[in-house]
């Protein structure tokens, strides 16, 4: 079993539903986001176009973050998901520097959504999941996977641009997409062997 995600860039319309779906699933504090959609333009007038690139933790097979973690807080599971054990994380931030995809964020502080206000009831509930002085990132919605559901970003995408499954299974949707459309990871040359592939970009 090797969990992987495929993002169809021809379908992606840059709406950022994935970003908010992730926030809604995990209740990340203000300013913290496990998924970002890079929005940029290519070409010149009169043929310029917008382009979109959703970026999340790539759950690399040879993760740069894992190599630099001094305490072993960052670890990789058999199924390919890279996680952080927050009991072991000392907040040194070496992983934040090492990650070439900017997928990790350090919790300098837990800020409230409404500046100048106290946490909303939602935040009171969710902020318990976050420890100031540690690093956080996408976990492929492990809790949802354990309940037999797909990651929140995959389900929410209105353009149905995101796919998730087992790359070890050659008949799975993700395997077929990677094979049929020559899916490649972002910045493959960095050699970290990401588990997130992009097609039709």
């Amino acid at each position: 079993m090797r969990y992987a995600m495929v993002i169809d860039l021809s379908r992606c319309v840059g709406c950022s539903t994935c970003t908010v779906a992730c926030r809604a699933e995990h209740g990340t504090p203000a300013g913290v986001s496990y998924n970002k959609v890079k929005k940029y333009e290519v070409g010149r007038y009169p043929t310029a176009k917008m382009k979109f690139l959703p970026i999340l933790c790539m759950h690399c097979q040879d993760p740069a973050c894992l190599k630099v973690c001094p305490t072993g807080a960052t670890y990789r599971r058999e199924d390919g998901i890279v996680l952080i054990d927050h009991d072991k994380c000392i907040g040194c931030r070496a992983c934040v520097v090492a990650c070439p995809y900017e997928s990790r964020q350090f919790l300098w502080d837990i800020r409230n959504y409404y500046p100048g206000h106290v946490p909303t009831p939602y935040e009171v509930l969710k902020q318990k999941d976050f420890e100031r002085g540690t690093v956080v990132k996408c976990d492929f919605c492990l809790q949802r996977l354990e309940e037999g559901q797909l990651p929140a970003c995959v389900v929410a995408c209105p353009a149905q641009a995101r796919y998730f499954g087992d790359l070890d299974d050659p008949e799975s949707e993700v395997s077929r997409l990677v094979a049929d459309y020559r899916g490649t990871p972002f910045r493959e040359e960095l050699g970290t062997q990401p588990s997130v592939y992009y097609v039709k970009g």
Binding site: C15, T17, A21, A24, P158, Q160
Partner: peptide
């Protein structure tokens, strides 16, 4: 406490998908 809104996967017209506004409703 409302902790999340999600598209209803069984229901038309969105079959589980949503948008940034719908996800931020709470």
């Amino acid at each position: 406490i409302v902790v999340k809104t999600e598209g209803n996967a069984e229901a038309p017209p969105t079959y589980g998908s949503l948008c940034p506004r719908g996800k931020s409703e709470l």
